[in-house]
Amino acid sequence: MTLDELDGQLLLLLTDEPRLGVLECSRRLGVARGTVQARLDKLLAGGVLTGFPPAVDLAAMGYGLTAFASCEIAQGRRGVVAERLRAIAEVCEVHATTGQADLLVRLVARSNEDLQRVIDEIVDVEGVQRLATSIALSTPVPPRVRPLLERLRGP
């Protein structure tokens, strides 16, 4: 899907203030309410905009430890293993990857001891053959889309 400058401005606005309504977006962008609604509908239908979830600070919830696990799995077991990982609450995301590892797993824990429990839970998943875990010490660049949206503005 190709986005234009107005799409980018709308997405930037909602990135900064996700609770804005359609009417306020139209006022700030200087376009009709119907235009904003049509753009939102197009972005949702095209899968560009996937929802308006709240931003949650996991550390503030008590999950101050973030780790990444490279997971090697038995051949043909990716779907089953991914579903089992989905059932572990501390697993935040799973990506199928190329290279030696088959899956990259981002997980959180409350402490080192809790991390060991989560790792043990993952290793117990049938089809998981090997797990290599790295603890994140900091997040110098958090997840972001702003630079890509700003690029839509053009020169």
Rank of each mutant, 00 (worst) to 15 (best):
P18R: 10
R110Q: 13
G46T: 02
G64N: 04
A101W: 03
T2V: 13
L6M: 12
E113Y: 04
L85I: 02
D114N: 09
R144P: 00
G76I: 07
G34D: 13
R33I: 14
I122A: 06
V22L: 14
V128W: 01
E24Q: 12
S134D: 10
Q37L: 15
I119V: 15
A67S: 11
V56I: 15
L103N: 04
G21E: 11
V128I: 11
A101I: 07
A96P: 15
P18H: 08
S70E: 12
R146Y: 01
A32W: 11
L148I: 01
T50D: 06
G76K: 05
L23M: 15
T98D: 08
G51T: 04
G8H: 03
L148W: 05
L58H: 11
V56F: 13
F68V: 13
I88E: 00
L3Q: 02
A45C: 05
L3D: 03
R117D: 09
S111K: 03
L85K: 01
V80T: 11
T98I: 08
A74F: 01
V118I: 13
A87D: 10
A38G: 12
R106V: 12
D120F: 00
P54H: 12
L40D: 03
L103T: 06
R106K: 14
L131Y: 07
R153P: 00
A69M: 11
V48T: 10
